[in-house]
Simulated assay, not measured.
Amino acid sequence: MSSNPKLHKFFHRTPIQIRFNDIDQLSHVTNSVYQQYFDLGRLKYFTEVLQEKMNWEVEGLVLASITIDYIIPIRMWDNIEVLSKIYEIGNKSLKMRQEIFNNTTGEVAAVSKAVMVCFSNAAGKSIPIPHRWRELILSFEKDLQL
C-alpha cells in the first residue's frame, strides 16, 4: 500500500485528555508530550484490535524507529485525539502511521510514523508476527493490502 497520507483512512481513534502539566511556557503542549500521546494511542490500538494484552515475555511489539512531524501547536483547552493505522505489515515487522487530530481547529497537529518489530523477550530475538495478530489487523484495517 502506498504511504501517501491522503490515501490513509483511520479506523481507530483514541481521545486524549490534555493535562495542565503537559503545557509549556508558551501555553502549548510541550513537544516531548506528543510522544506520550502517540504511545497511548498505539497501546489502545493494539489492545483493542488484537483483543488481548501483549505479554512481551512471549511475544510483543517493540519500536525500532519513530519520527514525529510537528505541524501546529496544541493548546490547553483543545479537544484532541490520536488516529492510528497500520499501513504495512511484513513477516516480523509492521509500519504504523498516527496523527494527533485537533477537533477544536479541525487540523492535524502532528504526524508520527513508526516501525515496530515483533519480539520475544524470553527468546531474546525478533519473531514472526503471530498469524492471529495478522488476521485481526487485516480484518480491522479494511483497506490494508499485502
Rank of each mutant, 00 (worst) to 15 (best):
M1W: 00
S2K: 07
S2D: 08
N4E: 09
P5N: 09
K6C: 03
H8C: 08
K9M: 02
K9T: 09
K9I: 08
T14P: 08
T14Y: 02
P15K: 09
I16A: 07
Q17A: 12
I18M: 13
F20S: 11
N21W: 14
D22G: 07
D22Q: 05
D22M: 09
Q25A: 14
Q25R: 12
Q25D: 14
L26D: 06
L26E: 07
L26W: 10
L26V: 01
H28R: 05
V29R: 04
V29M: 10
V29G: 05
T30C: 11
T30E: 09
T30D: 11
N31T: 07
Y34Q: 07
Q35N: 15
Q35Y: 15
Y37E: 07
Y37R: 11
Y37N: 08
F38W: 07
F38A: 08
F38V: 05
D39G: 06
G41Q: 07
G41K: 05
L43M: 14
K44Q: 13
Y45A: 09
Y45V: 07
E48Q: 13
E48F: 08
V49A: 07
Q51H: 10
E52G: 04
K53V: 14
K53D: 13
K53G: 14
W56R: 11
W56P: 15
W56L: 12
W56E: 10
E57H: 11
E59P: 04
L61F: 12
L61C: 04
V62R: 08
V62T: 12
L63A: 15
L63R: 12
A64Y: 09
S65C: 09
S65Q: 15
S65R: 15
T67M: 05
I68E: 06
Y70W: 00
Y70Q: 00
Y70T: 01
I71T: 03
I74R: 05
R75P: 04
R75G: 03
M76G: 00
W77K: 13
W77Q: 14
N79G: 00
I80P: 01
E81R: 00
S84E: 03
K85W: 01
I86R: 03
Y87D: 03
Y87N: 04
G90N: 08
G90V: 04
N91R: 08
N91W: 02
N91A: 08
K92V: 06
K92Q: 04
S93K: 11
K95A: 03
M96D: 02
R97Y: 01
R97F: 05
E99V: 00
I100S: 02
I100L: 07
N102E: 02
N103A: 00
N103M: 00
T104I: 02
T104N: 02
T105I: 02
G106T: 05
E107H: 08
V108F: 00
V108M: 01
A109V: 06
V111N: 00
A114N: 04
M116W: 04
F119H: 05
F119W: 09
N121T: 13
N121R: 13
K125R: 15
K125T: 15
I127Y: 02
I127T: 14
I129F: 06
P130Q: 06
H131Y: 15
H131K: 15
H131R: 12
W133C: 01
W133Y: 08
E135A: 13
L136A: 15
S139Q: 13
E141V: 06
K142H: 09
K142I: 03
L144D: 06
Q145N: 12
Q145Y: 04
L146E: 14
